[in-house]
Design a protein around this nucleic acid. Structure first.
Lengths: 223, 223
DNA sequence: TATATAATTTAGGCATGCCTAAATTAGTTT
DNA sequence: AAACTAATTTAGGCATGCCTAAATTATATA
């Protein structure tokens, strides 16, 4: 069995690989809130376990085995988030932190039963996809809210899950995954977004909008 | 915050204190499946934290602070067992092991919500009392099944929770806490017990009976 | 009371995983 | 191409918590 730390490293490498591409020691260390020297050490250990590929000064890549473990942990995490949210009513800005601790510790049996209870869901409370038992991720093609134009309508697909204050802020506007809204106006010069959610007019700052991803974009139909 | 290991030590010390009285390094080590030398080391650490009293070669005792932490962990453990059993349907012979890992990791918030979901229960699936938020334990006065005489009726109050095979065995007879049964015959010379559970006649070995504790004992009323 | 036995403690070692500080390598600039 | 800067790695240290082996203390027995 792997240590929790090793699992965290694999998870971070996976996520960084998804976003950026090349995963350097420094980026990885920053993501894990650890010093680069510590990351180097763990990377070497993971290499001996054949969970990553690694050449010094060249960055890390997950092997198939490493990716499988990363996806398993991510599945634990996201199922837990949704379970805590739906079954226990933990607010969505708290489930991430909670799941972070539990993900390393739940058995496959508990996971399977949560999965069943939830009806085999495909997304967590923040809209992130839940990998299935075989590690297959069904990605939805979403775009950042900051790409929207005046008048366009859309549905929230996903929001960043790791900033509790941001989530509370979004929650106060009902900006949950699945919520539809329409852009009333994008202020010029990188300004804020004024949007219409269920009749309510709301202003969303640009920095906040960067963390919101949307789906089902439609141009204004009053043309 | 305490480490998981320290919490486990406090929990074990509490349990041994309840049963036997004096808690020696050796007994503690055995209970934790650790070598005595390791126990000595941790005991010293707990002493510097003022969680235990300790004089070398004299055994350990919990301070008020140490007891409070032990009870908190035990509360986590037992609430988790009951939650896993009732909310997720994990079989009662599996919940102990699962809770053992989770107890160190759940937040007070999650605990409070499980408590609410369960309706503020006072006993876990094995009949062990769940301490309340303030660490108050409501002990029920039960006696070992091996003290029963021919013809006596009673209700199962509690069973040992740490032997999975034993629990499956008891479960196959429906010998859960709350189940009533009547002793048909106690075989002489430390022999097995023949009992009547809901009309079914069942033979329970002495070694098994030692792990079953009963309540509400009544003498035969056909006198 | 002296001694044998059993329990406990001390000493020293190992693995994990973090850190800081110094050395090395890569990449960029002149 | 040399030199500078930034990233990375190596070296050495620390805390946790386990272990074995040896020394010590307590206790029971003769």
């Amino acid at each position: 069995m792997l240590t929790h730390a090793a699992e965290d490293y694999l998870k971070s490498i996976y996520k960084l690989q998804e976003k950026g591409g090349k995963v350097s020691t420094g980026i990885l260390a920053e993501h894990l809130e650890v010093k680069p020297a510590s990351a180097t050490g763990m990377i070497k250990k993971l290499k001996t376990m054949k969970l990553v590929r690694y050449e010094r000064y060249r960055g890390v890549t997950l092997t198939a085995a490493g990716k499988a473990i990363a996806l398993e942990i991510i599945r634990h995490h996201r199922l837990l988030e949704l379970y805590l949210f739906k079954a226990l009513g933990i607010p969505w800005d708290g489930v991430h932190e909670e799941a972070e601790k539990l993900e390393h510790v739940i058995s496959e049996d508990v996971e399977a039963r949560m999965d069943e209870f939830l009806g085999y869901p495909t997304a967590d409370p923040h809209g992130a996809p839940i990998p299935d038992k075989n590690g297959v991720v069904t990605q939805t093609a979403s775009i950042p809210m900051t790409d929207l134009q005046n008048g366009q309508s859309c549905v929230v697909a996903e929001v960043s899950d790791n900033d509790s204050a941001l989530l509370r802020h979004l929650g106060s506007f009902n900006l949950y995954p699945g919520t539809a809204f329409r852009v009333i106006e994008v202020a010029p010069f990188e300004g804020p977004f004024t949007i219409d959610i269920a009749g309510q007019q709301v202003v969303i700052g640009r920095e906040v909008a960067k963390h919101v991803f949307v789906d089902q974009v439609q141009d204004p139909d009053n043309v």
